[in-house]
Design a protein around this nucleic acid. Structure first.
Ligand SMILES: NC(=O)c1ccc[n+]([C@@H]2O[C@H](COP(=O)([O-])OP(=O)(O)OC[C@H]3O[C@@H](n4cnc5c(N)ncnc54)[C@H](O)[C@@H]3O)[C@@H](O)[C@H]2O)c1
Ligand SMILES: NC(=O)c1ccc[n+]([C@@H]2O[C@H](COP(=O)([O-])OP(=O)(O)OC[C@H]3O[C@@H](n4cnc5c(N)ncnc54)[C@H](O)[C@@H]3O)[C@@H](O)[C@H]2O)c1
Lengths: 213, 213
DNA sequence: GCCGCCTTGTGAAAATCTTCACAATATTAG
DNA sequence: CTAATATTGTGAAGATTTTCACAAGGCGGC
């Protein structure tokens, strides 16, 4: 039955945004919200909000708006936040440590269940209840722990060798911080986080302004 | 003279990608490259590569391709990387420290020239040659140091008060890590880095797969 | 100098995404 | 019950982005 609609990258992005807005509204004890108000708190239009939501169903009541708690629940379900995701961190470096210490992921159902590194001086360290393991143990531990998502926070040079482990372990999704295009088997989802690119987009925008004057 | 073309977000993103590819090619001692090969190393098509570049001029030679070093130089110029940018970090926490210790920004011309925090136990610490300063000094120091870009790595709650300082100091661009929509004066560019959203896009993709089976 | 080959640059077509505009309908007041 | 009001859900229009397809050059070989 399920119709395969292709939801655009940007639409998914906006859904995350809407969820954050709804959570703010929940903490303000608001019961309902209109597409108009949602658009005011994001950077979109009311029509966009309604179109985005209508891709998944009709969640509002005409003349009344959306029930805040109900819509938040539906978005959580749509985004896959109605369950726990078992996550492994590979790369116990600067970014890795910032991520593991950050509580925001656990809150949303992403449980870091294993940490890997190749540096003998890091392997064995205790990081918030978890022991840093050698990358050589990846396949065994990842399958034992049913890891589905990997956060890759390693240098570019280490990517090829680490990806061999990751591929063999049957991981389904990768959040990649290394500034390189990953080669992954069919069916594995990858999202890149590239802060340098964001800075470049910023300096591009500023340079354009300068050029126009 | 300069025609004001609106370059899409995604096109700028791809330009950054192309630059990274060209830098790889440079380190492989390659002299020339075709749009075909560039597309193979990114996730686009050859036509897209050529269209993107043609927004800014015609940099190639028919039947021959692009000169790797020349094109890299032109992209650097387009992205505003042909100069130094003076950057201030606000928030000497986990993310802030990972960023400051990371060399990749300096390499690309982003110089962190000041670091601010509000925590008395952090103010005064030495971070790679810089003293962490109190956020109260922001306006004075930022204008003295000609800061143009701010990296905001503070908790959401601290955003409103910090933004007052930032707005008054006449900063032109902000790289924001706090998961909230910044309100900025006209003309200030903002780019958000939101890792939770990327993870949500990942779990969305994985959930969709599950649903389709 | 001419031919054949290769690859760019770019209009035009196709696809995708966003905005518009309004009928449908729930709610509330009288 | 009717009217007035609010706001959704959604086709259709409009805008933007991507892909197609090919003429226009440049280069090497003969
Ligand atoms: N730190 C930042 O602010 C920043 C910013 C942008 C991008 N990045 C990127 O993020 C990635 C991580 O950066 P970082 O600053 O955390 O680096 P880091 O050097 O602090 O940490 C990398 C970790 O990976 C480990 N590692 C190396 N090879 C490995 C292997 N084969 N298997 C397992 N672990 C291995 C290292 O031992 C180290 O602990 C890099 O690709 C970097 O380019 C970082
Ligand atoms: N750490 C992560 O992995 C991660 C992931 C996603 C998003 N974020 C976001 O990035 C931001 C920073 O995260 P973090 O983990 O580095 O937090 P952190 O708590 O480690 O650091 C925040 C720093 O900001 C400082 N600060 C607080 N109020 C301030 C003020 N008014 N003026 C100046 N400095 C002030 C604190 O003293 C602290 O040093 C947060 O908004 C967080 O939600 C972090």
């Amino acid at each position: 039955m399920s119709i395969v609609r292709k939801i655009s990258e940007s639409a998914v992005h906006r859904l995350s945004l809407y969820l954050r807005i709804l959570e703010d509204l929940e903490s303000e004890q608001r019961e309902t919200v209109s597409s108009e108000e949602m658009s005011g708190r994001s950077a979109t239009t009311a029509a966009q909000v309604r179109k985005d939501l209508s891709l998944f169903g009709s969640f509002g009541k005409r003349g009344w708006g959306y029930d805040v708690a109900d819509l938040a629940g539906r978005l959580r379900k749509i985004l896959g936040l109605d369950r726990q995701w078992r996550v492994a961190l590979v790369g116990a470096g600067r970014i890795g440590s910032a991520l593991v210490e950050y509580g925001g992921f656990g809150e949303r159902g992403y449980d870091v269940v294993a940490i890997f590194d190749s540096d003998a001086s890091k392997v064995g360290e205790k990081w918030g209840g978890l022991r840093v393991r050698d990358i050589g143990e990846f396949e065994e531990v990842a399958s034992e722990q049913s890891v589905e998502i990997v956060i890759l926070a390693i240098p570019v040079e280490a990517v090829p060798s680490v990806m061999e482990h990751v591929d063999r372990a049957g991981v389904r999704g990768i959040l990649n911080f290394a500034p390189t295009k990953l080669k992954v088997p069919e069916g594995v989802a990858v999202k890149d986080v590239n802060m340098v690119m964001e800075l470049e987009a910023l300096s591009f925008a500023l340079s354009q302004e300068d050029g126009e004057r």
